[in-house]
Write a protein that binds this DNA or RNA. Structure first.
Lengths: 198, 198
DNA sequence: GTTAGCATGTAAGGAGTTACATGATTTT
DNA sequence: AAAATCATGTAACTCCTTACATGCTAAC
């Protein structure tokens, strides 16, 4: 299956895994994570939270009056055990859906919770995806059927360079992963045992 | 107005302006233009062409049997006078909608049909948009409420560098536009000094 | 002769935005 | 006192993808 809208779900689950939060705060964190232009609206977030609740992955606690004052009660969401389980499983998925433009960033942001083997698979998958694109664009550049004024060419040149740059970045990261450059994840949630065989 | 789905419309109109085409060919050209990942489906293209037809911007000619052989008739679309008019007007729009991630590339691709003043406005608008983003991300980096493991940091660093790189690219292009055989007209936005600090 | 590419569409649905609606709290 | 920001949602709509449906033509 690997549904398409997985990016938001993973982001929300991951952030709530870090710490329980209410919607307003969550939105800001998600925007920082997905960031770079796309801004998540409440019209997406709240329904998504409800769906996550129906699925049993989060629970909504209406925290009344945090400190003694008459503060408006805010609805704080937190992960259930099922939610943690589901998140862990989502992080294991290192297939094509993890290489998408939209998804990759989020998956990368939670790499410290992802096992090293999956990390390398995702990075390599992403790299081949980009190399494939380069291949196509370069091939298209050969056969001259397409429009080729100087601006289109300039745009293509810049795009090509950007992608090449990201490929080099990925290569560096892969090398670093292989040589164990990153400190190993040691948060409490080390898939202690039993869990999740497919 | 400035509808959101303008990118596809401008792309189609612009490509048909270059030369009449049938849908299948058009799709490939649009993909080359919008390219870099997103692939346009027929489910989007054909309804869009119908809508453009209803709006009076294109006409569909069913070319029967191009050469003598019993070839399947293909439906060739071409711009009407209204379509050309509408396209020209769309190219004049150098407001915020032309600075979007999705739109900017398409608008840039048709710069050779855009007048020089609009070109500069679009490039500058795009640049300020990106600089605004940099500002926000850098500010967010200061206050340490957000998650900050090494991977998130690495992602942010790379994103920052990419955007900075695009800003430099835009600056080069703007300089080139200004010096490129264009007498310094009184286009209102004279920031001859002051800029680029900060 | 069968696979790959050419060619044109429709129907259903997903993912998200905008605009609407409402009100409390904090800062200036 | 006003403005900004906090806080939570709903309804309508748009853009686009996926999957379906159909059939021709070129190449291997």
């Amino acid at each position: 299956m690997t549904r398409r809208g997985a990016a938001l779900e993973v982001a929300v689950l991951g952030l709530l895994h870090d710490a329980p939060m209410h919607g307003y705060e969550l939105r800001k964190q998600v925007n920082a994570l997905l960031g770079w232009g796309r801004i998540l609206s409440y019209g997406t977030l709240y329904p998504a939270l409800k769906a996550l609740g129906r699925a049993g992955y989060v629970v909504a606690d209406e925290t009344v009056d945090p400190e003694g004052r008459g503060r408006r009660p805010r609805i704080v969401y937190q992960l259930t055990a099922e939610g943690k389980e589901h998140f862990a499983q989502a992080l294991e998925d290192s297939g094509p859906s993890a290489w998408d433009d939209e998804t990759f960033g989020v998956r990368f942001a939670f790499f410290s919770r992802t096992d090293a083997a999956s990390r390398v698979r995702i990075l390599e998958g992403r790299r081949s995806r980009l190399e494939e694109r380069l291949e196509n664009v370069r091939a298209a550049g050969q056969r001259k059927r397409d429009r080729a004024d100087s601006y289109t060419l300039e745009l293509q040149r810049h795009g090509l360079e950007s992608v090449e740059r990201e490929v080099r970045w990925l290569t560096e990261l892969i090398d670093r992963e292989r040589s164990g450059g990153y400190p190993d994840t040691d948060d409490g949630t080390t898939e202690t045992s039993t869990t999740t065989e497919k």
